[in-house]
Design a protein around this nucleic acid. Structure first.
Lengths: 238, 238
DNA sequence: CAGTGGTCTAGACCACTGA
DNA sequence: CAGTGGTCTAGACCACTGA
């Protein structure tokens, strides 16, 4: 047990002091806060130290800084949250449950116009397509309909997706990526309902995700989950 | 137009260099990366400068640092995304549309056991309850069923929620807060379906959010959106 | 022109790790 | 004990803003 109180770093003291002031409403949103020079005098620390405290508050969205003008309490009406999304296989394993995947489709196809545009392919170019159903303890949890840019993952069709997941494989092939996604409630298609073993009317949580790595589109995926079996959880931490 | 190429800050150059290396797979997840001293020699900058670059990469989750040991390429299997949630009224206004709210309920009630526990109230204590339907251009978009801790917002029952939203009001009363939430697809209750003007079978996106400010529970809200009218969007930025 | 924040340096002391 | 990262300082130069 580490009960020995570690001395708090000065930059952290400054940061917590300002945070507490913001929490107490000492500065209204948009109001001018103390300058670096004032904080230097108040805390008796160097300017680099208060600068770090303020820079971190800015990156957390708690204050806004304008060069030549000053530091302002942030408007808190835009709130960004953290939604941690893990690889499904890993997530199921972490619950101590058994994961298995049924691969229903894994082939090359000609890409339709919209799909080609979305993946940056020439019109009518080939695209890789997989359709995989993921099970947790034998119960279908996710229907993963995925298109992959062949240039980004040329060996995609040879991978055994009963052993690894496309997400995990693509993360290895294209290590750093960005993604945009939408989350909505919708019905499953007839095929998805059949694969998931649910009724046509059952609400599903549908995530559509487009992934880009170093400017190159990698993959477009539609992930359909029975609403009764899956939910997302997250937290705000302004 | 600011086409005059602003000189890139040295800490930023170091950071981008390491980022590019990670993107190119120069270091596999878990692998040891160059030390601060090596980067100082390589780039000819001071240690504070490379330290800042590495600290920012660590806070973005791209590297992991262990004092006394070194800096390692991060495992990228846990990905956290940014989901920006704005006040609904503001979001609708930003689309250039008209927002209006129907207040169906605004009263004090005895809290049930589970609710009292969730809001940190004594069993059987009073709780504030509002039921509000938000419309975009006259179409019901969100049914907001909300319970509020009276201690946190004593004047809540006197607020005119046809003019402001509970979210916006509570942000003013309790400026800094944290929230946990879940997102799922479900059916609306009979009452919600009626208020939203949808069928009992229509899939809905349901967000349940519990908010805490300075350790004090503030509010518990169930936000129900017709799946056909609302979706969430976000992006990953690892 | 005074005041603001953005950044960098060269040096320092420290805690921690593993050989 | 050598090497690592965590932090701080005192000073500097700069870009930018608004009076």
């Amino acid at each position: 047990m580490d009960t020995a109180a570690r001395p708090v770093a000065p930059y952290s003291r400054v940061k917590e002091h300002l945070k507490a002031g913001l929490a107490a409403g000492r500065w209204r949103p948009g109001e001018l806060m103390p300058s670096e020079a004032e904080l230097v005098a108040q805390f008796g620390v160097s300017r680099m130290t208060v600068h770090r405290a303020l820079r971190e508050l800015a990156s957390e969205g708690l204050v806004e800084r304008v060069q030549g003008v000053g530091t302002f309490a942030a408007q808190l009406h835009r709130i960004s949250s953290t939604l941690t999304i893990r690889d499904l296989q890993e997530e199921i394993a972490a619950r101590g449950h058994r994961h298995h995947a049924e691969v229903h489709l894994q082939r090359r196809e000609p890409a339709g116009t919209g799909l080609a545009a979305s993946l940056g392919l020439a019109a009518g170019g080939a695209v890789f397509h997989t359709l995989i159903v993921h099970h947790e303890n034998g119960v279908p949890l996710q229907c993963e309909d995925r298109y992959v840019n062949p240039a980004a993952a040329p060996d995609y069709l040879g991978v055994d997706f009963s052993r690894t997941t496309p997400t995990s494989y693509l993360l290895e092939v294209a290590p750093l990526w960005e993604a945009q996604y939408t989350i909505e409630a919708d019905r499953a298609t007839a095929q998805e309902a059949k694969l998931l073993g649910i009724g046509r009317d059952e609400p599903c949580l549908v995530i559509v995700r487009r992934t880009v790595s170093r400017g190159v589109p990698i993959t477009l995926a539609r992930l359909v989950h029975p609403g009764s079996r899956y939910r997302l959880a997250g937290r705000f931490n302004p």
